[in-house]
Amino acid sequence: MARAAIELNGVTKSYEVGAVTVTALHAVDLTIAEGEFVVVLGPSGSGKTTLLNMVGALDIPTEGTVHVAGRDITESSRGELFEFRRQSVSFIFQSFNLFPGLTALENVQFGADVAGRRGGADARDVLASVGLGDRVGHFPHELSGGEQQRVAIARALATGNPVLLADEPTGELDFTTGAQVLELLQAQSKAGKTALVVTHNREISRIADRVLQLSGGRIVSDGPPPGGRADISALSW
């Protein structure tokens, strides 16, 4: 069996909202193997994004431990968490969050520069690999939504980090474009990267290796997609 890329043990996350304590995650135990393509489903407020933020070290659990890419990030210092994000995980956001002052190529190069990995892929090649080899000099506002998201994926890939974390990556895209994006993520998973995709779109979960269902901060189901794994061409929404 492949090594664990992500491992959560008894992870609880609570917030104080005024006098009320809101628990976003309840003692979650989860292990995701290297190269797995995992989709996290759940309604709004179920804790999907909190889970993603825990894995990405953007947030720390109230209780429990989080291991990602072999590192216990719950015990890490602030500086170590920054270093962890540079070297271990890459984010893909629903609203892309590209740097508007940088061209497509420069946005991708940013990912490579931040990770500072020697011998990494050339940003131009990475951009070409997401089908945007002819859009290198375009600024984000000159690109369509799908193109912007592909640039965002290319930026994440350019880091060379082993874990991809995507928060509603198709949320702002039409079906065709969304499918292209999913295809890219799936390809990365096949290439050995671990992909954790958060979405409320149940259709997307059909192409995953594994689907986690969250409700009220708890994992209520964990397993392959119901009805078996489907090909992207079989999706529709």
């Binding site: 994000r85 540079r86 070297q87 969050n97 931040v114 990770a115």
Partner: peptide, 14 residues
């Protein structure tokens, strides 16, 4: 602030 948040998400230090 969003650009900085993105940078932080990519591990750029404060």
């Amino acid at each position: 602030r969003r650009e900085y948040a993105t940078m932080f998400a990519y591990g750029l230090s404060v």
